[in-house]
């Protein structure tokens, strides 16, 4: 008797308040996120374009448009051209390695074995720990005197004696020799992205229907043929996703170069992100900095288009 009216007795209880109108409520709920994104991503992005067309500096940040001068000045700068080249080389080399290694690692992780949680934790560490702190660990490993890599090489007799394979000096100076510094930065980039790519690939591999592979085996397809005709085509979308996100993260990364080499020796490891920082913030040339950073945009736009396509295609399947 005292209980409220049973459910369903009044099919349309109350409609019309602001908390009930679908369209209004939807807009109200979406608005904060969209306003935030517009104000804090959209507006700064427009401002970056305006800065790149101006002569603004930290001392005089007023917008005085000067046309495309900053872009032509950047292109004429040999350090910028080196940074542009390095950004592409570091990204493509490291991400190619990441795709190959992550496939191997993902295949191994699919098999049952003891202590999987520990192996998983250790393998994921480079992605789960803050990148600047992990890179600090590498900085100490690449130390010019106390590098453990050098110690092992000396111990094996490959370094530090007159007849040694890698020369008579006691150290390799990983971050001091241009070629080695480039390799060192690439290794840390691989180290950093490998866990992410592996987890993405694991998802892709475990989603292949088992019976498909078994049917192919019954039909007499060799392991190579099964990989070539089934595994690779079926995991191609997921591998592409892993590759594209790896590209985004490596292409725009400042931390690894900033912590390891600061772009040195003599700008040999400079990338677009680090050069933007050194020019725009430390050098105070906002206009140049903005112009340099915008050179990243076309690549990111292309990547975004590819990601969209992947999303569309997989939705159709």
């Amino acid at each position: 008797m005292t209980s409220p009216a049973p459910a369903g007795s009044s099919p349309a209880p109350y409609r019309g308040g602001i908390l009930d109108r679908k369209e209004t409520l939807a807009k109200l709920l979406i608005a904060p996120a969209v306003v935030y994104i517009a104000a804090m991503i959209g507006a700064p992005f427009v401002l970056a374009i305006l800065y790149s067309l101006s002569d603004a500096t930290t001392g005089d940040p007023s917008l005085h448009l000067v046309g495309l001068r900053n872009f032509t000045a950047a292109l004429a700068d040999p350090v910028f051209r080196l940074a542009l080249w390095n950004t592409f080389v570091f990204t493509l080399v490291s991400q190619t390695l990441v795709i190959i290694l992550s496939r191997i690692l993902a295949n191994a992780l699919l098999k049952p074995f003891r202590g999987k949680w520990l192996v998983r934790f250790l393998i994921l560490l480079p992605w789960t720990a803050p990148i600047s702190l992990g890179t600090i660990g590498w900085l100490w490993m690449y130390d010019s005197i106390f590098s453990p890599i050098d110690w092992v090489l000396r111990y094996l007799g490959a370094l530090g004696t007159a007849t040694a394979l890698l020369g008579p000096e006691t150290n390799m100076y990983w971050l001091g020799v241009p070629g080695l510094a480039i390799a060192s930065v690439i290794v840390v980039n691989v180290w950093r992205i490998l866990p992410l790519a592996t987890v993405i690939q694991l998802g892709g591999l475990s989603s292949i229907p088992k019976d498909l592979l078994e049917a192919a085996e019954v039909d007499g397809a060799s392991p190579w043929r099964r990989t070539l005709m089934i595994t690779i085509p079926l995991t191609l979308p997921i591998v592409s996703i892993a590759f594209l996100f790896g590209v985004v993260f490596t292409f725009t990364d400042l931390v690894v170069v900033y912590v390891l080499t600061r772009g040195g020796p003599v700008h040999m490891t400079q990338v677009l992100a680090s050069w933007t920082f050194f020019k725009g913030i430390e050098g105070g040339d906002l206009a140049q900095g903005a112009a340099i950073s915008l050179f990243m945009f076309p690549v990111l736009a292309v990547v975004a288009i590819f990601i969209l396509r992947m999303a569309r295609r997989t939705e159709v399947v």
Partner: peptide
Amino acid sequence: GALIASLPVAVVYTFFLDRFVAGFTMGAVK
């Protein structure tokens, strides 16, 4: 300092990484 700041966040993150990746792959894995 690097070690102390890294490990706790790494432990927590490890448990949630699969969901993070599910966000990236946007249903490409079904």
